[in-house]
Design a protein around this nucleic acid. Structure first.
Lengths: 144, 144
DNA sequence: GACGTAACTTGTATTCTACAGACGGCCTCA
DNA sequence: TGAGGCCGTCTGTAGAATACAAGTTACGTC
């Protein structure tokens, strides 16, 4: 099998596994999987606009808007008209939203740590480094 | 930041990026994202039962059953009563399903290859190896 | 100030999801 | 041998997430 096929295959299995873990975790939480993901992105960025969030998640801006409406109604975020550009929406976490984001991040960290434990010790450092390199590329691609 | 936090964070970004790419690809295809994912798993395994598929994808068996019903109706798979265990369903690809799975796999491979190109050349081999190690762990976890 | 473009939201339809419950096949144990 | 219990699947129901189309408001340019 060609190298890039091996890469693609492994990447897909990994993404599938991460999705599985996230979904399992969400079933016992106070937010839905997509809400958790949205809160995490906002938490990492501090403040986002609707469209930049949509870009990061790879979803339609209309979908992002609807998801944010739900989070706002539930008291996790606030939406204000942007000061620089009146068309944009300035999305921020409420204290409650920040708590939820932190809880989610902690839970994920724990779940993934358990996973990392099952990788051979000598490979762990390599794995983290490699993933971070890939994450940098992917983050650049979804940049505002 | 602790090592396992770095790992968790990078893993989440990677999974997010893979989801984004898969969703974008699916928009131009003949199957939905979840259908593509389902066909890929069946193609890799040759034959699956409803519940083992659900386990692999991390979804409820009832959801898997419904998704399979859609794929069967669309002519991508066949469902027969299992020979060993009459309770199980023996799910297999039709020729049309196999074609769709191959097309999907080829497309993903191409999309991910483009991603791999953007990772520094010396890191590529390390990245593929590391991902495969992680994939092995995740595959074991979802084993039948 | 008028026109074109961009950001966001809402209308609508579809897909994907889980939890409950029903049905039928398998297995064990008396 | 058959009764009880468990397992695999499917269906009923309801909610969450998605995209595309179209409308509204704001920005920028000419």
């Amino acid at each position: 099998m060609a190298d890039h096929d091996r890469f693609a295959r492994a990447l897909q299995i990994v993404a599938r596994g991460v999705g599985r873990i996230s979904r399992e975790r969400a079933r016992s939480g106070e937010v839905t999987p997509q809400q958790a993901e949205t809160l995490l992105v906002i938490s990492e960025r501090g403040a986002v606009s609707t469209s930049s969030l949509a870009m990061t998640l790879g979803i339609d801006p209309s979908t992002a808007s609807r998801n944010l409406a739900g989070l706002e109604k539930a008291g996790f975020i606030t939406r204000k008209k942007g000061t620089d550009d009146g068309r944009q929406t300035d999305v921020r976490l409420t204290p409650r939203g920040k708590r939820a984001a932190d809880t989610t991040a902690a839970g994920s960290s724990q779940a993934f740590a358990a996973l990392l434990e099952r990788v051979g010790r000598p490979d762990r450092q390599k794995l983290t480094d490699a993933l971070e390199a890939l994450a940098r590329v992917l983050d650049g691609e979804s940049a505002v």
